[in-house]
Structure formats: C-alpha cells, structure tokens
C-alpha cells in the first residue's frame, strides 16, 4: 500500500474514534473546547508517531513473550519526554489537559497500533501509520471539541460569536457523551459504515 493510502486509511476507514472506538477517555474528557481537543490530539499524535517508529525499529529484537511490557516501557518513555516538552513550551495547555497527558500511556490506540501495525512493518510505513491514525484522532477530537464549544459556550476556537452562555450541560460530562454519539452516527452514515 502506498504511503498516502496508509495515512488516508488511518484518517477515515480506521478512524480511531468514530470507527474503532478506541481511546475514549481523552476523547470525552478533554474536548471541552476545540483548542483543548486539538492539543490532546497533537500530544497523542506525537507519542504515536515516535513510538511507532521506535517499535518498528526494535520489534525484531524483542522476544515474543515479553513484547507487551517492552512496548509499554517504550511508550511511557515517550510520554515522559512529551510531559517535559509540554511543561517547558506550553505550560498552560499542560495544566488544562492535566491527568490525561500521563494517561496517554494507557491509551489503547498507541498500544493497539504498536501491536497491529508497527511490529510487522517498516519504519517509514509505521511513521505514516502513526501520522494517519494521529491525524484521525486529532480531527475527531477537534470536531467534538468544536461542537461542544459552540453549543456549550457560544464560541468557536475561543472566539465568542454569541451573547450569553449557551447550554452548560454540553461543556459538562453529559454533553461529551451526547455529542460523541451523534457525531459517530453521522460519520457512519456519511462513510456508509453501517
């Protein structure tokens, strides 16, 4: 498969949020606004690409029985790097995303791609796969965040276009579930994935 095909597959056909339904905790927990969703998506993509590249490089040398713990250590190392980088350059975003940054370690998307793709494919393909799935995740999170922000606080990407407050429930927990459910249905309808 071509590099572009791999990226497109992660973005649409294997979209981690709407099709595979993986990594639901950050999807619901951090999408209170479009910017937060975007930040979380990019943070996850960073770890996903690097861990995919690294795992595809070392996969041949890891005994089959201990591969999962090894992958987790590799992913946790990249998450630690991400934490330090974010603390240094975007401390306000780090503060907002809080607990969900260290929790990228247990995000099933990252481990899932390592197990399903990176350990049997080349470095470049794995990087493309990480990029595609990461972009799919970022787009989905930004979209969910955007819808919740518009309905919940009457603004988009931080720009207020409406007087008053909007429907508070959409910024709080229940809105996350409702918005994700309806977006998932729309995505299924559009891609004919019923």
């Amino acid at each position: 498969m071509s590099k572009g095909g791999i990226i497109l597959k992660g973005l649409v056909k294997d979209n981690p949020t709407f099709v595979l339904v993986l990594g639901m905790c950050p999807t619901l927990g951090t999408t209170t606004s479009a910017i937060n969703g975007f930040g979380m998506g990019v943070a996850t993509m960073f770890v996903l690409i690097l861990s995919n590249i690294f795992i595809s490089l070392v996969a041949g040398g890891i005994p089959d029985k201990v591969r999962i713990p090894c992958y987790i250590v590799i992913i946790a190392s990249f998450v630690t790097i991400l934490q330090l980088v974010m603390q240094a350059f975007v401390p306000s975003m780090y503060e907002v995303l809080g607990l969900f940054i260290p929790l990228i370690v247990v995000n099933c998307i990252v481990l899932g791609r390592a197990e399903a793709f990176a350990n049997k494919n080349g470095v470049l393909d794995s990087a493309c796969d990480g990029l595609g799935v990461g972009l799919g995740f970022t787009c989905a999170l930004t979209l969910i965040g955007l819808v919740r922000e518009i309905l919940g606080s009457g603004s988009a990407f931080g720009f207020k276009f409406m007087e008053g407050d909007g429907i508070l429930a959409f910024v709080l927990a229940p809105g996350a579930f409702f918005v994700l459910a309806y977006l998932m249905v729309i995505f299924r309808k559009l891609t004919g994935n019923l």
């Binding site: 709080l172 579930f177 409702f178 459910a181 998932m184």
Partner: peptide
C-alpha cells in the same frame, strides 16, 4: 445507525445527567 456504541453513549450521557 445507533446500534451498538452510539446508543450506549447516549445512555451513558443520560446517566451522567442524573449524576450531575
């Protein structure tokens, strides 16, 4: 279109509304 995960999410949303 709602079969499976979406209807489960809607249910969870209503449950979350109750917990609010």
């Amino acid at each position: 279109a709602f079969k499976g995960v979406p209807i489960a999410l809607v249910t969870a949303g209503i449950l979350a509304l109750a917990f609010m």
